[in-house]
Protein backbone atom coordinates (compact mmCIF):
# COMPACT_ATOMS: atom_id res chain seq x y z
CA UNK A 1 0.00 0.00 0.00
CA UNK A 2 1.40 3.38 -0.98
CA UNK A 3 1.70 6.25 1.46
CA UNK A 4 -1.16 8.05 -0.27
CA UNK A 5 -3.48 5.02 -0.17
CA UNK A 6 -2.64 4.43 3.47
CA UNK A 7 -3.34 8.00 4.42
CA UNK A 8 -6.73 8.12 2.73
CA UNK A 9 -7.60 4.74 4.31
CA UNK A 10 -6.71 6.10 7.74
CA UNK A 11 -8.86 9.17 7.26
CA UNK A 12 -11.74 7.01 6.04
CA UNK A 13 -11.40 4.78 9.08
CA UNK A 14 -11.65 7.90 11.25
CA UNK A 15 -14.78 8.86 9.27
CA UNK A 16 -13.40 12.15 8.05
CA UNK A 17 -11.87 13.56 4.87
CA UNK A 18 -8.11 13.90 4.60
CA UNK A 19 -6.64 17.39 4.83
CA UNK A 20 -4.25 18.21 2.01
CA UNK A 21 -2.17 21.35 2.47
CA UNK A 22 -0.35 23.21 -0.26
CA UNK A 23 2.69 25.34 0.42
CA UNK A 24 5.27 26.71 -1.98
CA UNK A 25 8.67 25.03 -1.67
CA UNK A 26 11.34 27.49 -0.61
CA UNK A 27 8.90 30.27 0.25
CA UNK A 28 10.16 32.68 1.46
CA UNK A 29 13.54 31.01 2.10
CA UNK A 30 14.89 27.50 2.55
CA UNK A 31 15.09 27.40 6.35
CA UNK A 32 11.63 28.89 6.94
CA UNK A 33 10.06 26.71 4.28
CA UNK A 34 11.61 23.63 5.89
CA UNK A 35 10.17 24.65 9.26
CA UNK A 36 6.73 25.21 7.67
CA UNK A 37 6.86 21.81 6.02
CA UNK A 38 7.70 20.09 9.28
CA UNK A 39 4.96 21.99 11.12
CA UNK A 40 2.22 20.89 8.71
CA UNK A 41 1.67 17.29 9.93
CA UNK A 42 1.66 18.45 13.56
CA UNK A 43 -0.95 21.07 12.68
CA UNK A 44 -3.28 18.46 11.21
CA UNK A 45 -2.20 18.11 7.58
CA UNK A 46 -2.51 14.55 6.26
CA UNK A 47 -0.87 15.10 2.89
CA UNK A 48 1.54 17.80 1.76
CA UNK A 49 1.26 19.34 -1.66
CA UNK A 50 4.58 20.97 -2.32
CA UNK A 51 4.55 23.73 -4.93
CA UNK A 52 7.37 23.85 -7.44
CA UNK A 53 7.89 27.50 -8.36
CA UNK A 54 7.36 28.49 -12.00
CA UNK A 55 7.69 31.92 -13.56
CA UNK A 56 4.37 31.72 -15.44
CA UNK A 57 1.75 29.96 -13.31
CA UNK A 58 -1.26 30.37 -15.58
CA UNK A 59 -3.74 28.61 -13.26
CA UNK A 60 -2.76 30.46 -10.11
CA UNK A 61 -4.11 33.56 -8.46
CA UNK A 62 -2.04 36.41 -7.07
CA UNK A 63 -1.17 34.80 -3.70
CA UNK A 64 0.49 31.75 -5.25
CA UNK A 65 2.01 33.85 -8.04
CA UNK A 66 3.78 35.92 -5.40
CA UNK A 67 4.88 32.84 -3.47
CA UNK A 68 6.27 31.49 -6.74
CA UNK A 69 8.33 34.64 -7.11
CA UNK A 70 9.58 34.70 -3.52
CA UNK A 71 10.83 31.11 -3.64
CA UNK A 72 13.25 31.41 -6.60
CA UNK A 73 14.35 34.80 -5.25
CA UNK A 74 15.24 32.92 -2.05
CA UNK A 75 17.31 30.48 -4.11
CA UNK A 76 14.82 27.65 -4.68
CA UNK A 77 15.39 25.42 -7.73
CA UNK A 78 13.86 22.11 -8.89
CA UNK A 79 16.90 20.36 -7.41
CA UNK A 80 16.32 22.28 -4.18
CA UNK A 81 12.70 21.14 -4.01
CA UNK A 82 13.78 17.51 -4.24
CA UNK A 83 16.45 18.14 -1.60
CA UNK A 84 13.80 19.46 0.78
CA UNK A 85 11.66 16.37 0.26
CA UNK A 86 14.68 14.15 0.92
CA UNK A 87 15.42 15.97 4.19
CA UNK A 88 11.77 15.77 5.24
CA UNK A 89 11.66 12.03 4.57
CA UNK A 90 14.52 11.40 7.00
CA UNK A 91 12.25 12.65 9.79
CA UNK A 92 8.81 11.66 8.49
CA UNK A 93 8.32 8.42 6.60
CA UNK A 94 4.54 8.45 6.48
CA UNK A 95 3.22 11.84 5.33
CA UNK A 96 2.67 11.66 1.57
CA UNK A 97 4.27 14.37 -0.51
CA UNK A 98 2.84 15.43 -3.84
CA UNK A 99 4.73 17.91 -5.98
CA UNK A 100 2.50 20.40 -7.75
CA UNK A 101 3.52 22.73 -10.51
CA UNK A 102 3.97 23.22 -14.23
CA UNK A 103 5.72 21.06 -16.78
CA UNK A 104 8.55 23.20 -18.10
CA UNK A 105 10.93 23.01 -15.11
CA UNK A 106 10.60 19.20 -15.17
CA UNK A 107 11.02 19.06 -18.95
CA UNK A 108 14.19 21.14 -18.70
CA UNK A 109 15.48 19.05 -15.76
CA UNK A 110 14.94 15.96 -17.93
CA UNK A 111 11.89 13.76 -17.36
CA UNK A 112 13.66 10.47 -16.58
CA UNK A 113 16.30 12.15 -14.46
CA UNK A 114 13.65 14.06 -12.56
CA UNK A 115 11.48 11.02 -11.90
CA UNK A 116 14.44 8.97 -10.66
CA UNK A 117 15.53 11.78 -8.34
CA UNK A 118 11.96 12.36 -7.12
CA UNK A 119 11.49 8.65 -6.37
CA UNK A 120 14.80 8.56 -4.46
CA UNK A 121 13.84 11.65 -2.49
CA UNK A 122 10.55 10.11 -1.40
CA UNK A 123 8.05 11.94 -3.60
CA UNK A 124 4.72 10.10 -3.80
CA UNK A 125 2.87 11.90 -6.54
CA UNK A 126 2.81 14.68 -9.09
CA UNK A 127 0.13 17.20 -10.01
CA UNK A 128 1.14 19.02 -13.16
CA UNK A 129 -1.41 21.60 -14.12
CA UNK A 130 -0.57 21.97 -17.81
CA UNK A 131 -0.44 18.27 -18.72
CA UNK A 132 -3.93 17.09 -19.75
CA UNK A 133 -4.44 13.42 -20.75
CA UNK A 134 -3.74 14.40 -24.38
CA UNK A 135 -0.09 14.81 -23.30
CA UNK A 136 0.18 11.59 -21.25
CA UNK A 137 3.29 10.42 -23.09
CA UNK A 138 5.25 13.39 -21.77
CA UNK A 139 5.31 12.69 -18.04
CA UNK A 140 2.25 10.76 -16.83
CA UNK A 141 3.18 7.38 -18.26
CA UNK A 142 6.89 7.68 -17.41
CA UNK A 143 5.87 8.67 -13.85
CA UNK A 144 3.62 5.64 -13.47
CA UNK A 145 6.48 3.43 -14.69
CA UNK A 146 8.78 5.06 -12.14
CA UNK A 147 6.30 4.25 -9.37
CA UNK A 148 5.10 7.80 -8.80
CA UNK A 149 1.39 8.60 -8.79
CA UNK A 150 0.13 11.01 -11.40
CA UNK A 151 -2.80 12.88 -9.89
CA UNK A 152 -5.07 14.43 -12.44
CA UNK A 153 -7.20 17.51 -12.12
CA UNK A 154 -10.83 17.21 -13.13
CA UNK A 155 -12.92 20.34 -13.45
CA UNK A 156 -16.52 21.46 -13.84
CA UNK A 157 -15.92 21.44 -17.61
CA UNK A 158 -14.93 17.75 -17.59
CA UNK A 159 -18.25 16.16 -18.58
CA UNK A 160 -19.28 12.51 -18.24
CA UNK A 161 -18.10 11.75 -21.75
CA UNK A 162 -14.60 13.04 -21.07
CA UNK A 163 -14.28 11.90 -17.47
CA UNK A 164 -13.09 8.34 -18.31
CA UNK A 165 -10.29 9.82 -20.47
CA UNK A 166 -9.19 12.01 -17.59
CA UNK A 167 -9.40 9.20 -15.04
CA UNK A 168 -7.70 6.61 -17.25
CA UNK A 169 -4.09 7.02 -16.10
CA UNK A 170 -4.88 8.81 -12.85
CA UNK A 171 -3.56 7.25 -9.68
CA UNK A 172 -3.25 8.10 -5.98
CA UNK A 173 -6.32 10.30 -5.90
CA UNK A 174 -8.43 12.49 -8.15
CA UNK A 175 -8.20 16.23 -7.63
CA UNK A 176 -11.50 17.95 -8.34
CA UNK A 177 -11.13 21.66 -9.06
CA UNK A 178 -14.16 23.18 -7.37
CA UNK A 179 -14.81 25.85 -10.00
CA UNK A 180 -13.82 27.26 -13.35
CA UNK A 181 -11.14 29.58 -12.16
CA UNK A 182 -7.70 30.08 -10.70
CA UNK A 183 -6.43 29.22 -7.24
CA UNK A 184 -7.75 31.51 -4.54
CA UNK A 185 -11.01 32.46 -6.25
CA UNK A 186 -14.35 32.07 -4.46
CA UNK A 187 -16.49 28.94 -4.70
CA UNK A 188 -19.91 29.90 -6.02
CA UNK A 189 -21.88 26.84 -4.93
CA UNK A 190 -20.75 24.30 -2.35
CA UNK A 191 -23.78 22.20 -3.22
CA UNK A 192 -22.70 21.87 -6.85
CA UNK A 193 -19.28 20.70 -5.65
CA UNK A 194 -20.92 17.90 -3.66
CA UNK A 195 -22.87 16.74 -6.71
CA UNK A 196 -19.75 16.81 -8.86
CA UNK A 197 -17.84 14.72 -6.32
CA UNK A 198 -20.59 12.09 -6.33
CA UNK A 199 -20.55 12.09 -10.12
CA UNK A 200 -16.79 11.47 -10.18
CA UNK A 201 -17.09 8.76 -7.54
CA UNK A 202 -19.54 6.90 -9.75
CA UNK A 203 -16.70 6.61 -12.28
CA UNK A 204 -13.78 5.65 -10.03
CA UNK A 205 -12.76 3.93 -6.80
CA UNK A 206 -9.96 6.42 -6.21
CA UNK A 207 -10.34 8.97 -3.41
CA UNK A 208 -11.60 12.34 -4.62
CA UNK A 209 -10.07 15.46 -3.08
CA UNK A 210 -11.48 18.92 -3.71
CA UNK A 211 -9.38 22.04 -4.02
CA UNK A 212 -9.47 25.68 -5.17
CA UNK A 213 -11.33 28.23 -3.09
CA UNK A 214 -11.43 26.34 0.22
CA UNK A 215 -10.59 28.86 2.91
CA UNK A 216 -12.53 28.28 6.11
CA UNK A 217 -13.41 25.51 8.56
CA UNK A 218 -16.99 25.77 7.22
CA UNK A 219 -15.79 25.21 3.63
CA UNK A 220 -13.78 22.22 4.83
CA UNK A 221 -16.64 20.78 6.84
CA UNK A 222 -19.28 21.20 4.17
CA UNK A 223 -17.27 20.07 1.16
CA UNK A 224 -15.70 17.35 3.27
CA UNK A 225 -19.13 15.76 3.73
CA UNK A 226 -18.82 14.33 0.22
CA UNK A 227 -15.13 14.55 -0.61
CA UNK A 228 -12.44 12.13 0.55
CA UNK A 229 -10.03 14.99 0.91
CA UNK A 230 -9.98 18.75 0.86
CA UNK A 231 -7.09 20.90 -0.30
CA UNK A 232 -6.12 24.21 1.25
CA UNK A 233 -3.42 26.29 -0.42
CA UNK A 234 -3.91 29.95 -1.21
CA UNK A 235 -4.71 30.95 2.40
CA UNK A 236 -1.44 29.34 3.54
CA UNK A 237 0.73 30.97 0.88
CA UNK A 238 -1.03 34.25 1.56
CA UNK A 239 -0.29 33.87 5.29
CA UNK A 240 3.40 33.49 4.47
CA UNK A 241 3.27 36.65 2.39
CA UNK A 242 1.48 38.67 5.06
CA UNK A 243 3.86 37.55 7.81
CA UNK A 244 6.93 38.94 6.09
CA UNK A 245 8.74 41.97 7.42
CA UNK A 246 10.67 43.90 4.76
CA UNK A 247 10.23 40.93 2.45
CA UNK A 248 11.91 38.55 4.90
CA UNK A 249 10.53 35.80 7.12
CA UNK A 250 9.63 36.94 10.62
CA UNK A 251 9.19 35.01 13.87
CA UNK A 252 5.48 34.91 12.98
CA UNK A 253 5.84 33.21 9.59
CA UNK A 254 5.77 29.56 10.64
CA UNK A 255 3.15 30.08 13.34
CA UNK A 256 0.92 32.02 10.90
CA UNK A 257 0.76 28.97 8.63
CA UNK A 258 0.31 26.59 11.56
CA UNK A 259 -2.56 28.68 12.97
CA UNK A 260 -4.40 28.75 9.65
CA UNK A 261 -4.06 24.99 9.11
CA UNK A 262 -5.76 24.46 12.47
CA UNK A 263 -9.02 25.84 11.09
CA UNK A 264 -9.65 23.41 8.19
CA UNK A 265 -8.12 20.67 10.35
CA UNK A 266 -10.97 21.26 12.78
CA UNK A 267 -13.37 21.47 9.84
CA UNK A 268 -12.49 18.03 8.47
CA UNK A 269 -12.96 16.49 11.91
CA UNK A 270 -16.58 17.59 12.12
CA UNK A 271 -17.39 17.11 8.42
CA UNK A 272 -19.31 13.89 8.92
CA UNK A 273 -20.97 14.71 12.23
Amino acid sequence: MSRIEKRFAQAKAANRPALVTYVMAGDPDLATSRAIMEALPQAGSDIIEFGMPFSDPMADGVAIQLGGQRAPAGGMTPRGVLGMVEDFRRKDETTPIVLMGYYNPIYIFGVDKFLAAAKDAGVDGLIIVDLPPEEDEELCIPALKAGINFIRLTTPTTDDKRLPTVLHNTSGFVYYVSMNGITGAAIKSRGAVGEAVERIKSHTDLPVAVGFGIKTAEDAAEIGRHADGIVVGTVLVDAVGKSLVDGKASDKTVSAVRDIVASPAAGVKRARE
Binding site: P132, R152, R162, V166
Partner: peptide
Amino acid sequence: MAVSGLYGGRFVAETLMPLI
Protein backbone atom coordinates in the same frame (compact mmCIF):
# COMPACT_ATOMS: atom_id res chain seq x y z
CA MET B 1 -1.33 16.71 -31.40
CA ALA B 2 1.86 18.45 -32.34
CA VAL B 3 2.35 21.01 -35.08
CA SER B 4 5.37 19.18 -36.35
CA GLY B 5 7.35 16.61 -34.41
CA LEU B 6 8.58 18.01 -31.14
CA TYR B 7 6.79 21.35 -31.36
CA GLY B 8 3.24 22.45 -30.67
CA GLY B 9 0.95 20.44 -28.41
CA ARG B 10 -1.85 21.19 -25.98
CA PHE B 11 -0.23 22.00 -22.67
CA VAL B 12 -3.20 23.58 -20.93
CA ALA B 13 -5.20 23.13 -17.74
CA GLU B 14 -8.01 20.56 -17.86
CA THR B 15 -10.62 23.33 -17.48
CA LEU B 16 -9.72 24.51 -20.98
CA MET B 17 -9.31 21.14 -22.70
CA PRO B 18 -12.97 20.45 -23.53
CA LEU B 19 -13.27 23.91 -25.08
CA ILE B 20 -10.06 23.50 -27.06
